[in-house]
Amino acid sequence: KRYRAVYDYSAADEDEVSFQDGDTIVNVQQIDDGWMYGTVERTGDTGMLPANYVEAI
């Protein structure tokens, strides 16, 4: 699945990823209600991200 960031996010922990509004997130997997795991296409960084900061595309 592919998602697009709708807000900027700065990683708060080493297992999270930072991204900017408009970034595409690929290979996304749902972890639980609030978190997903995926790769930021622009940077190649992979990690956890907050589900409410992205939307499906």
Rank of each mutant, 00 (worst) to 15 (best):
T39D: 03
T43D: 02
R2H: 08
D13F: 12
A5D: 02
R42W: 04
D8M: 08
T24W: 14
R2P: 05
A11L: 03
E55M: 10
I25F: 11
Y7G: 13
V40D: 02
V6L: 15
G47T: 00
E14V: 13
R4Q: 08
G47I: 03
V28E: 02
G34Q: 14
E41T: 07
V54A: 05
A12R: 14
D23S: 00
Y7M: 15
T46V: 09
D32N: 14
Y37M: 11
M36K: 04
D23C: 03
Q29K: 13
R42M: 04
G38L: 01
A51N: 06
Y37W: 13
G44Y: 04
Y37G: 03
E41S: 07
Q30M: 13
V28S: 05
V26Y: 10
V26R: 08
Y7S: 14
V40S: 01
A12Y: 09
R2C: 12
I57K: 05
G38T: 00
I31S: 07
L49Y: 12
Q30V: 13
Y37V: 12
Q20R: 14
D33L: 09
I31R: 11
Y53L: 12
Y37D: 04
Y9T: 02
V17C: 06
D33G: 12
Q30F: 15
D33F: 10
D21L: 15
G22W: 04
V26F: 09
Y3V: 08
Q29H: 14
M36E: 02
D21E: 15
R4L: 10
T43Y: 01
V40N: 09
Y3G: 03
T43S: 07
Y3Q: 04
V28F: 04
T46Q: 10
Y9K: 03
V26G: 06
Q20S: 10
N27V: 15
E41A: 09
K1F: 07
A56M: 14
S10E: 14
E41C: 12
D15R: 15
I31Y: 09
S18M: 01
D13Y: 12
T46H: 09
Q30P: 10
Y37A: 06
G22S: 05
D32V: 12
V54S: 01
E55Y: 08
D8W: 07
Y7R: 15
D32G: 13
D8R: 07
I57M: 11
R42I: 06
G22N: 06
I31H: 07
I31Q: 07
N27W: 08
A51E: 07
E41G: 04
F19R: 01
A12D: 08
T39S: 05
V6T: 09
R42Y: 03
V26K: 08
G22I: 02
G44R: 05
Y3A: 05
G47A: 02
Q20N: 11
S10C: 14
D45G: 07
K1P: 13
W35V: 04
G38W: 00
P50T: 02
Y53P: 02
Q29M: 13
Q20M: 13
N27T: 06
G44V: 02
D21T: 15
V54R: 00
R42P: 04
D15V: 10
G34M: 15
G34I: 14
Q29N: 09
G38N: 01
I31V: 12
D23T: 01
V6G: 05
D8I: 05
Y37K: 09
G34H: 15
L49G: 00
G38M: 00
L49I: 14
K1G: 11
W35I: 05
R2M: 10
D15A: 13
G47H: 02
Q29Y: 13
G44W: 05
M48T: 07
E16V: 05
A11P: 06
T39I: 05
K1H: 11
D45H: 12
W35Y: 07
Y37I: 13
G34D: 15
D33S: 11
R2S: 09
W35Q: 03
V28L: 07
M36N: 04
A56L: 15
D45P: 00
M36F: 14
V28W: 05
I57H: 07
S10G: 07
T24K: 06
L49Q: 01
M48C: 12
K1I: 13
I31D: 05
I31L: 13
E41Q: 09
V6C: 13
Y7N: 13
V28R: 02
E41D: 07
G44C: 08
Q20L: 14
G22M: 04
I25G: 01
R2F: 08
N27M: 12
P50C: 09
D33W: 09
Q29D: 08
A56T: 09
R42V: 04
R2E: 08
W35T: 05
Q29P: 00
T46E: 08
G22C: 06
D13G: 15
E55R: 09
G34R: 14
I57N: 05
G47W: 00
D8F: 07
I57W: 10
N52M: 12
T46P: 03
R42H: 06
D13C: 15
D8S: 14
M36T: 03
